[in-house]
Design a protein around this nucleic acid. Structure first.
Lengths: 219, 219
DNA sequence: CTCCGTCCAGAACACATGTTTTGAGGCGCG
DNA sequence: CGCGCCTCAAAACATGTGTTCTGGACGGAG
């Protein structure tokens, strides 16, 4: 991979970059050429334009021609405008809790209790992730504690032994367990020696999602 | 606290709002009146202006007069422009690893392996948080697994029994353990039945930080 | 029916803003 | 010195874009 070698911006260009950052931070929209002009005490708009061209050529910004305020900071030093994936924490989950209203999309009904932002590598190409907050210690041996947040990838099936969000249709319960297929039956296995597995007809068990991550918060 | 009672937007206004959201999400800057016009199949800019005025009066948006693209989504459903705290994942930690070069600030030397973004409530007012990736199973009983990421708050001391990042000066090792003060000695206790605690002079043990969170990623 | 308030269409208007042109210093180089 | 090159200044230009004016369609209240 060849990195484009780029010159360091001149002092004036540094100042322009800095101003653009601050302006966006403060106003939620990019500045105009003339905003930059007055803010940086530049005598003419042409000078601003000139320097913006250079900054663009060096790859610090992008400009959309003929578009008012069409300046966009590129890569690095843009304050923190990064839009990382944000996923909703929808509900509590534990054995015996009433089922969530998860539709085919995975979720969409109901307002999230909160949302969390995660790194792209946590998403890893997965789509429609959501999260649940764990209640109880049924998965303690899988290193999932009370109060942890589990990241869920919507799924209708799962491998044998996977940690899943499973819904028991008759009981209308949703719970977090290891799932094992045993012929016509399904065993939902807590990761806690003191708890017993649940056995049910496979027709009564509906997989809603796979656990793909865990987040714990201490106080 | 009196909430301003506001009418529900008309279908056309709903569509406009939705378009504004998408446009900002996609272009990092608000749309023009004419962008909205064409996108929403509206015959005239005046109609857009008219509806924008209403939306402003009802408090859904704010507009800056005479400013190109001076539309700002207010409160609720704006895409998700929040800038959340980002912290660096600095290194691996395990018993026996060479010490990290953590200065008084907590960190600042060395490039992070990666960075993660976390919710404000994970920070909870704490300053200079950083993260380490756990290697090994020494804390397995504390529900911290191999490969987990632990969030660290820099600290020079810690309560008895707290989970800390401790450095043994003589050995120049840094490790993740429960720490207990026992008179002149310090016991660094793994959370793993198969592992033995480390005893050391308190003068030889330097607390570098407290664990305030755990993040796990499954594949 | 008329009156009035709401919502819309079309066109024009006014100015905000990107872009270009022209030319002037400064600076290294032969 | 003359030449090319980078940087800047001032002004003009072209168009992007917010705003206003005029009027029509529609529906409910009197």
């Amino acid at each position: 991979m060849i990195m484009p070698r780029r010159k360091k911006p001149s002092p004036r260009q540094e100042r322009i970059l800095q101003f653009i950052r601050e302006f966006i931070e403060e106003n939620d929209l990019p500045p105009t050429v003339r905003d930059i002009q007055t803010a940086c005490s530049i005598s003419s708009t042409s000078v601003v334009d000139y320097n913006l061209r250079l900054l663009q050529k060096e790859g610090f910004i992008r400009r959309r021609p003929d578009v008012a305020r069409g300046i966009e900071l590129v890569g690095m030093a843009r304050g923190h405008t990064s839009s990382l994936p944000r996923i909703p924490v929808l509900a509590y989950i534990a054995a015996g809790e009433p089922a969530l209203a998860l539709d085919a999309e995975g979720w969409s009904s109901g307002e999230p209790m909160e949302t969390i932002e995660i790194t792209p590598d946590m998403v890893a190409g997965r789509r429609d992730l959501y999260a649940l907050r764990v209640r109880g210690t049924s998965m303690i041996d899988a290193l999932v504690a009370d109060g942890d947040i589990v990241l869920i990838e919507p799924a209708r099936q799962a491998n044998n032994g996977a940690m899943v969000v499973a819904r028991l249709k008759e009981e209308n319960e949703t719970t977090l367990k290891y799932m094992y297929w045993e012929g016509d039956m399904v065993r939902l296995q807590p990761a806690n020696e003191q708890m017993e597995p649940i056995y049910s007809h496979s027709g009564n068990v509906e997989v809603q999602g796979r656990v793909v991550g865990v987040i714990r918060l201490m106080r």
